[in-house]
Design a binder for these strands. Structure first.
Lengths: 333, 333
DNA sequence: CTGAAAGCGCTAACAC
DNA sequence: GTGTTAGCGCTTTCAG
C-alpha cells in the first residue's frame, strides 16, 4: 500500500498512521470530524513525512480551489502594491490563496494571463481595468466565475466594479488650481491607458467650465521621473507662460518639480504642480507635492470582500462601489 | 456524450467535431500529429465553444505542469519588476507559465507562499533570497523540483545560485568615495534583510581597510524617500562633519540628496552620496546620483534559463553564477 | 467516527 | 492518423 516513491500522498500518511486516506482527508479539512487520538497521530505523520497539499484533485472534482486570480498592470508601482495588500488582508483571513499576474498595461497579455489563471480553476478574478479583449470577456463568461473590475468605474461592467471616479478626481484637482487663481494650466500625461484618459477628461472639463484654454502634453512612454522633465521642456518651448500643471501621476509631477527648480522657476508662485496618487515621495521633496489620494488599499479590501462573498453565494446589494478620493494639500500648489 | 453543462471539456469539442477527445488532446499539444482537416475543424470548435485549458488533470498525472513559481519580496520595487521581466522573457519563449508570489521580506510568508506554489505542482521555483525557514527547505526537498536562489550569492546554496556579490559591490562603491578623498563616510541602511547586511559588510571592510571609522545609521522601517531625510537628520545631530554617505538603496540616497540641498549642503563637495541599484529616478535629480547598477534583468533571464534547462533534464555546468555589477558615475560623488 | 467505491478531465501507452 | 484503456490523488456519497 505504501506508495513511498515521488511526492508523498494522503495514502502515505494513512499507511503511517494505520487508517485510510479518507480519514486523513477529513482530518485536514475538518479536524473536528476525527477522533482526537487519530488527529494527533495524523498531525505527527504529516510533520514527519512532509506532506504537501495537492490542489489538482480538488480542481478536478468540481470542488472550489479556494484561490482567486488577481491581475495588476505593473509590478513597480506602489499603487498596485497597496491594492494587493488590501486584497490579501481579506483573503488571508478567509482562507483563500491569491494567484498574481501582471500584464504591463497590455490587453493581449492580460488575455493570456487570464487564460492561465482560469486553467488553474480560480474561484474568482479581480481585474484592474474595465476594458478587455473580446476573447477575455468570452473566457470569463465561459468560466462562469465572479469577476471584479477594480480601480476605475464604468457604465458597462462585467459584474461588480470597485473604484473611484478618476474624471471627477481630476476635475477637482484642476478646479483647485483654478480656484487658486491659475489661468494657464497644462496637462501632462504618459502611457495612454484608461485611467490617464479619464484624468485628462476631468482636466478638460474643468478647464472648459472655466472658459480657459487646454494644453495637453502627452507621451506614450512609460511614466517616469525623467519624463516629467521632458514634458516640461516641451511645454516651455511651445508656450512660455504656464502657471500650472496637472500631472497624471506623481512620478511625472516630481520630475517637473525637480526640473523647474533647476530652471529657477518658483513653485507654486510661478508654476503650481499637482500630481496623482499621493505616493510617499511627494512628501520627501520641497515643496511637498499636492496630489490626489486614491484609496487603493481600501479598493483592494472591498474588491476581495465582495468577490469572496459572491463566490460563497451571498447576494451583493449593488454593483458599483465608488470609494472616492481626497486631495492632499502640499506646498506645490 | 455531450456534457454541455458547466465548463466545456475536451469531450465537448470532440463531440462537436465528431472525433474522440484523444484526438483533440493531441491536436492541442502537438498539432502536427493530426490531419489538417481535423485540425481545422477542431480549431473552429474550440473557438466556437470557448474551450479553456484545464491544468488539473495534467498535474494529477505525473506530467509536468509547464509552470514555474517565482517569489519576490516586494511588489513596488523596480528591481524586482525588471527581474521578473527577465524571467518572463525566457519562460514566454519556452512555453512556460509563471506563478508569482510576494512575501514582503518575511520568511514565514515565504514559507506559506512556497507551500501554495508547490500545491500547484510547479515544475521549479525561483527564490530571491538565500535564507529560508527549515520547513521551506524541507518542502522544497520533498517536492524534489529544481530551485534557483537569485539576486545574491551564498556559500550554502540549495542548488543553483544566480546573483551578484553585494559585499564586493558595496566595497567598490565605498572605495570609490575613499579614492575621491572622502574620509568620514557613513552607511545608511534600512530594512535589515540579507542584501542590506552584505552591503554593510562591504562598506565596513572598505572603511576598515582604509583605517577609517565606521558610522552606521540603521532603521528597520521599510525604505523610502522620507527615510533618507530622517537618517540624514539623525546622522547630522550625532556627528556634524560627514563628508560622504553610502546608502543601501537609491530611495534613501535620493531622500538624502533632497534633504541636503534644502539644508544648503553642497553635493558632492561637502557631502558625497552613492546609492544602490541605479534606478531611473537617480538620473532625474540634480546632482544625478552615483549608484551601483545591479543586472537584475539579466539575473532573471539567467535564472529562468538555468531553471528550465534543469527541469528539462539538461546538466548544468556550475552552480554559482555571479553576474557582477557596475558603478554608474553620477554627479553626486 | 471510519471505510469503500466512484469519478473528476486529461494524457501515456498501446492498439489498429 | 485515430481510438481504447487505465490511472493520476483526492473528495463526495453512501455504508457501516
Amino acid at each position: 500500500m505504501a506508495t513511498s516513491k515521488g511526492r508523498p500522498s494522503l495514502q502515505d500518511i494513512a499507511d503511517e498512521v494505520g487508517v485510510t486516506k479518507m480519514t486523513v482527508s477529513r482530518c485536514l479539512r475538518n479536524p473536528a470530524t476525527v477522533s482526537e487520538v487519530t488527529r494527533e497521530k495524523i498531525a505527527k505523520a504529516i510533520e514527519k513525512i512532509g506532506y504537501i497539499q495537492n490542489r489538482a484533485p480538488a480542481m478536478l472534482s468540481k470542488a472550489s480551489s479556494r484561490s482567486i486570480g488577481v491581475l495588476i498592470p505593473s509590478l513597480s508601482n506602489q499603487v498596485f502594491s497597496h491594492f494587493v495588500q488590501g486584497i490579501e488582508a481579506v483573503t488571508n483571513k478567509r482562507g483563500y490563496e491569491v494567484l498574481l499576474s501582471h500584464y504591463g498595461y497590455n490587453e493581449e497579455i492580460e488575455e493570456r494571463k487570464i487564460d492561465t489563471l482560469l486553467s488553474y480553476h480560480v474561484d474568482g478574478v479581480i481585474l484592474t481595468s474595465t476594458s478587455h479583449s473580446e476573447r477575455t470577456l468570452k473566457m470569463l463568461k465561459t468560466a462562469g466565475i465572479p469577476v471584479i473590475e477594480a480601480m476605475e468605474l464604468t457604465d458597462n461592467p462585467i459584474d461588480i466594479v470597485v473604484g473611484l471616479d478618476h474624471k471627477a478626481a481630476a476635475y477637482a484637482a484642476t478646479q483647485k488650481m483654478i480656484d487658486s487663481g491659475k489661468k494657464r494650466i497644462a496637462y501632462f500625461g504618459a502611457r495612454l491607458d484608461n485611467r490617464t484618459k479619464y484624468r485628462m477628461e476631468g482636466y478638460d472639463m474643468a478647464i472648459n467650465d472655466a472658459g480657459y484654454q487646454k494644453y495637453h502634453f502627452l507621451t506614450s512612454n512609460h511614466s517616469s521621473f525623467t519624463l516629467g522633465r521632458e514634458l516640461l521642456d516641451r511645454a516651455m518651448s511651445e508656450y512660455s507662460d504656464f502657471d500650472g500643471v496637472f500631472c497624471t501621476n506623481d512620478d511625472i509631477a516630481i520630475g517637473v518639480i525637480l526640473a523647474a527648480r533647476e530652471k529657477g522657476i518658483l513653485i507654486p508662485q510661478q508654476l503650481a504642480v499637482i500630481g496623482y496618487n499621493a505616493l510617499d515621495i511627494g512628501q520627501a521633496i520641497t515643496p511637498s507635492l499636492t496630489s490626489v489620494y486614491t484609496p487603493r488599499y481600501e479598493i483592494g479590501e472591498r474588491s476581495a470582500k465582495l468577490l469572496l462573498d459572491r463566490i460563497e453565494g451571498l447576494t451583493i446589494d449593488n454593483q458599483m462601489h465608488n470609494l472616492g478620493f481626497t486631495i492632499t494639500q502640499g506646498a506645490s500648489s
